[in-house]
Design a protein around this nucleic acid. Sequence first.
DNA 1: GCCAACGTTGGC
DNA 2: GCCAACGTTGGC
Length: 166
Amino acid sequence: MAARQRRYWVMKSEPDVYSFEDLQNDPEGHEHWDGVRNYQARNFLCSQRVGDPVLFYHSNTDVPAVVGIAKVVREAYPDPTAFDPNDNHFDPRSNPDSPTWFMTDIAAVRPLERSLPLRELQQRPELDGLALIRKGNRLSVMEISKAHYDFIVSLARKKPPSPSSR
DNA sequence: GCCAACGTTGGC
DNA sequence: GCCAACGTTGGC
């Protein structure tokens, strides 16, 4: 059977809550991505396959930016926080017999050579249409095209734009 | 802290 | 099924 086409992802996290450094330093080498309670993001999670590359994005911080590369190491399985009445993400409609919410495990691969601020990404015409830079975007898990993924990874190897050129 | 964008809820 | 109200996200 032919292998499924590789898909590429962006996953957002607030660095005050869980940063890329936290992922790198995780004693188990990976972290489960729980707490997703948006159907579109859930569907993306369930489409992830082991080995898929993930861009790690820091949101809700001084300089929102893509900071590192991770990868999927375990495919979707039920998110137990949905069953826990004491958890912030408790959802009484999800029951263990037919769970509504899922999570995947991801592991850090490496940090980018330099982090790429949202502001800079928004200025690159090559990234037109990228969901991450669309205003009002609130998804914590998004798909990204291979072209956009490759462009972002290569952009991190280039020098940042000089302030005078803005 | 403000506010725009968006998803969800619930009255009708 | 429509849509106003509300809550949340997240850039600024």
